[in-house]
């Protein structure tokens, strides 16, 4: 796995916060950098991929461990 430039901790947050925090983090990164989003809201399972496809950012990988959903995203 590449270097993770930032981690978004949206654990415990409800819709729409995981997406809002993800968007905020993406704004602060340079194109090509990879960041990690962690969330526990099960809505994020579809919301983060939807956000990525809507904004053109690349969802590299997603995984689940217990209650935590993890998304690795490369900034466009």
């Amino acid at each position: 796995m590449e270097d993770i430039a930032a981690t978004v901790d949206a654990k415990g947050q409800s819709c729409p916060m995981p997406v809002l925090l993800t968007s905020k983090a993406a704004k602060e990164l340079a194109p090509g950098q990879v960041f990690l989003v962690e969330a526990t809201d099960t809505g994020a399972r579809s919301d983060i991929p939807a956000w990525a496809s809507q904004t053109g950012n690349e969802l590299i990988e997603s995984s689940e461990e217990g209650d935590v959903l993890r998304f690795y995203i490369r900034k466009k």
Binding site: C15, P16, V19, S23, Q54, T55
Partner: peptide, 11 residues
């Protein structure tokens, strides 16, 4: 408010 903030976050 949820839809507007999410829309803005989605560019």
């Amino acid at each position: 408010m949820i839809l507007s903030s999410t829309g803005a976050a989605s560019g």
